[in-house]
Simulated assay, not measured.
Amino acid sequence: MSIDVDTVAKIARLARLKVPEAEQPQLAKELSGILTWIEQLNEVNTQGVEPLASVSDVTLPMREDVVTDGGIAAKVLANAPGGAVYLEPGDHSVGGFFTVPKVVE
């Protein structure tokens, strides 16, 4: 397929690109070359070829998706300013969390 200078000007206008007239013949030649290469790719027989998501056939190991508290709540809360208190899981009384000053009024 061959692209002429008028087509390049139209493409540039549609793409809202400013292409100087002196560069349009070279751009037409390059775009024609790209389309010729794509036509060559269309000639390749791809019957029976599975689509690929990656060129390497590697599968990642799976792990069980389990929600946990991380098991280190006491260590995390030890860094808290103001002496946050760690409570055992299930104890929802005071403590076991960070308190921060209100930032939105």
Score class of each variant (00 low, 15 high):
81 P>T: 15
73 A>C: 13
50 E>H: 11
8 V>E: 00
70 G>W: 01
98 F>C: 02
38 I>G: 09
30 E>N: 14
74 A>M: 05
12 A>D: 00
81 P>K: 14
97 F>C: 12
102 K>P: 10
37 W>V: 08
1 M>N: 06
10 K>A: 13
96 G>Y: 00
35 L>K: 13
25 P>V: 01
84 A>M: 04
81 P>N: 15
47 Q>Y: 02
51 P>Y: 10
80 A>N: 07
25 P>D: 00
88 E>V: 12
99 T>C: 03
95 G>H: 03
40 Q>M: 11
80 A>L: 08
92 H>S: 11
94 V>C: 03
42 N>W: 04
12 A>F: 04
78 A>S: 14
26 Q>Y: 12
70 G>L: 00
96 G>S: 03
73 A>F: 02
31 L>W: 09
57 D>Y: 10
82 G>T: 02
3 I>N: 04
90 G>N: 09
49 V>W: 06
45 N>H: 11
50 E>K: 15
76 V>N: 09
4 D>H: 12
66 V>H: 07
50 E>C: 04
32 S>C: 10
50 E>N: 09
68 T>P: 01
71 G>D: 01
53 A>H: 13
18 K>W: 00
105 E>S: 11
94 V>R: 06
15 A>W: 10
56 S>F: 12
43 E>Q: 13
39 E>Y: 08
79 N>I: 05
5 V>Y: 02
7 T>H: 07
75 K>R: 03
16 R>D: 07
15 A>M: 10
74 A>H: 08
35 L>R: 12
65 D>I: 03
77 L>K: 01
95 G>W: 02
33 G>Q: 14
44 V>C: 11
70 G>S: 04
28 A>P: 10
104 V>L: 07
29 K>F: 14
53 A>N: 13
90 G>P: 05
59 T>Y: 05
79 N>W: 12
63 R>N: 02
31 L>K: 12
20 P>L: 05
86 Y>N: 09
18 K>T: 01
76 V>K: 02
50 E>Y: 12
84 A>D: 05
79 N>D: 07
47 Q>F: 04
99 T>F: 07
101 P>I: 00
61 P>S: 09
25 P>M: 04
105 E>G: 15
70 G>H: 00
57 D>C: 06
67 V>D: 14
2 S>E: 15
47 Q>A: 13
45 N>E: 12
96 G>D: 05
32 S>P: 09
24 Q>I: 00
57 D>V: 06
38 I>M: 08
77 L>T: 01
48 G>V: 02
66 V>L: 08
34 I>A: 13
1 M>I: 07
24 Q>S: 00
